[in-house]
Design a protein around this nucleic acid. Structure first.
Lengths: 165, 165
DNA sequence: CTGAAATACTCAGTGCCCTGATTAATTCAC
DNA sequence: GTGAATTAATCAGGGCACTGAGTATTTCAG
């Protein structure tokens, strides 16, 4: 009986939180457009003409995932994808009128959904909630992208021994 | 320019938190066994002989996902799956010796990983962190599984007629 | 100017996560 | 006891997320 209490495991909690959010999004915001898709639309409202990789960086999606998400938005006609004439490797992305309209509509519903989602917390608690999660997530991300540890052998996630099966 | 600030969106934060956790798990715990797989092993350490659906309920995975996860653990020889002689619909699940050994080994590493993950927070903050996330996740889950609103037409997620806020 | 390195994107493969439909077994109403 | 729900599991299908390998384009060193 060496079982562990998963309710004290941040990873497990994070997964459950995301599932809960997924459900609420589906019922209150959209069954067509997902939350990551909305994040991409939003990034392109803020900065039209970004390339694919940068959009991924803005919203926190890796190169493969961002490619899939963008291809879905493209299929739905919500954005345009054109080769950068100055750098033939890049695609420049821009919302269509339909994409802009969709973003506007979903932004309203998203705000409503966030209220419902956070309703169990008081205003101060909501602030704490954001702050705590952000700090943990940021710290873990910076373990991956080391903050310029130039000179000597400082590394992110140095071997730490084991890691077998 | 009606773009929204995603850092105040709990769903976006939840996704980033989970990604960060995924990364850390991969480097500090295991590249073979995932966190949901470990959760299943853990549930079966606590309650050997559970059926598939109940395991899913314990760890928060739906019928389809739990089936996939269990089939992977089965392929790896970490659990046994036998028809319940008393109810031919069910499969009863039990860890093999190998499954038990794997759980023991990963439990140790998982504890270490949680420490690193939560290192940016003080002890009290960690407690808050757990409490806040749990409250939000629980509340959202109970919207889905209404707490027995028997008699008249009370439903979960009624047309989204606003609520708390 | 040319070959090597870096960069943007694609593709193949694995795993998680959900819904709706289907199949097999059990239970419940009559 | 038999037919109608109910229930456990499967299957098909769509989407997110990561890694490693491959292609095309640009940049940089010499």
């Amino acid at each position: 009986m060496a079982a562990v209490d998963l309710t004290t495991h941040p990873g497990h909690l994070a997964r459950r939180l995301q599932q809960a959010h997924y459900l609420l999004w589906n019922t209150m915001v959209s069954e067509e457009i997902t939350s990551p898709q909305f994040a991409v639309l939003n990034a392109l409202v803020a900065e039209p003409g970004l390339d694919q990789r940068t959009v991924g960086e803005r919203v926190g999606l890796d190169r493969s995932t961002i490619a899939e998400v963008i291809s879905r938005l493209d299929r739905r006609g919500l954005l345009d994808k054109v080769r950068d004439p100055r750098d033939g490797r890049r695609f420049l992305l821009r919302l269509t009128d339909d994409g802009l309209r969709t973003h506007r509509k979903l932004a309203v519903r998203t705000a409503r959904m966030n209220q419902v989602f956070l309703a169990p917390l008081s205003a101060e608690e909501q602030t704490q909630f954001f702050g705590l999660i952000r700090r943990v997530a940021d710290a873990a991300e910076s373990l991956r992208n080391p903050p310029e540890a130039a000179a000597s052998g400082v590394q992110a996630l140095p071997g730490l021994g084991v890691r077998g099966a």
